[in-house]
Amino acid sequence: MKSTVMKKTMYFFAVPALLFYLTFWIFPITKLFQYSVTDYNGYAQSFNYIGFDNYKDLFSGGTLGNSISNTLIYTVVSVVAGNLIGLGLALLLNMKIRGKGFYRSISYIPTLFSAIVVGFIWSYVYMPDSGMIATFLDKLGIPNDNLNFLGSYSTALYSIIFVEIWKNVGTTMIIFLAGLQTVPNDLLEAGRIDGCGGWKLLRYVKLPLLATSITINTTLSLINGLKAFDFPFIMTNGGPGTSTNTLIYSIYKMAFTEQMFGKASALGIISFVLIIAVTAVSVLLMNRKEVSA
């Protein structure tokens, strides 16, 4: 009798979480799919069912390919470079150096700023002629007349990726640092006695024990890259041309600028499936590495 009452009580406590999940997860996705098969423009009271025409247009046009390409570049570069820089900082600040608490704080500060603040600051830093970089090069006597980081097709996307890494590397560093501080000193001493130098200790002792930290940082960086919107919107507005159009920015542009809400919903469904698939595969592979490590 008591176990039956306990089970009913457990189900009762699960109801709020279930309602939250249905309201803010299942219902929006269902509505998104409903809109994706219509010609809804975002404000009209009536709209027509058009089947999968929006999906066909996306796959036949260049918008989807360009957005996916930019998003994948953004994601891969930010994940790889961000984790390498974060690991390097963590290894450096885990050493016995004076003032390392201060350096840790300085490294983490960019994480505390909002994306809007960071985007505006770096827009001024990158500004041609009068920006910080241009002024610094002027002082050194280096010509910078054609230097336009955010206005060039070849540099705009990578300039934004650098800002993404700069903002989030503090979080990456802290997670790696927490992992490094759990590495037993006995193992490190045993490795040194066996003749392991700094690189071998990192490769065969520290990195295997950092498998969980690597998984967490990779997953967080992956999600941040795949849902990139803030910096392309704030710093370049998707330009020049479509060079910084990411998937999420393209959804925003279609829905609120071009007033093609149905088509934007279709792109949202495609993005949702792509992000879930990439994240799931990544987590699965990282978990396998954790087990083997």
Rank of each mutant, 00 (worst) to 15 (best):
N245R: 02
L137S: 06
D186S: 13
A14E: 00
G42W: 00
T236E: 01
F52Y: 14
V169K: 06
L91S: 08
L22N: 08
T71R: 06
N48D: 14
I160V: 15
I116E: 11
I106R: 11
K253F: 11
T218A: 13
G191W: 06
S67V: 07
P128F: 06
N144H: 15
M95R: 14
V80D: 06
L150Q: 09
Y55F: 14
S60R: 12
S152P: 09
E164C: 00
I97Y: 02
D129I: 07
K200G: 02
Y108W: 11
I29M: 12
N144Y: 04
R288Q: 10
S282D: 08
A211Q: 11
I234T: 03
Q259W: 12
V15T: 01
N70W: 13
T215F: 04
A190D: 08
V37L: 10
G131I: 12
P184E: 13
M95Y: 03
I160M: 15
S105C: 12
F27E: 11
I276C: 14
S213H: 02
N185D: 13
Y126V: 15
P28F: 10
G86M: 10
N185A: 14
L92G: 00
P28N: 09
N48R: 11
V278H: 03
F47H: 12
S3G: 03
T215N: 13
A156W: 05
T155R: 03
I270F: 09
G191H: 05
F256N: 00
Y21L: 14
S159N: 06
Y204G: 07
T71F: 07
L220N: 05
A293Y: 14
V15N: 01
M10T: 05
S221F: 09
V77L: 09
E189A: 12
L58G: 00
M6H: 07
V118G: 02
Y74T: 08
Y55S: 01
P184V: 08
Y35S: 04
S265K: 06
S36V: 10
L188Y: 09
L284C: 01
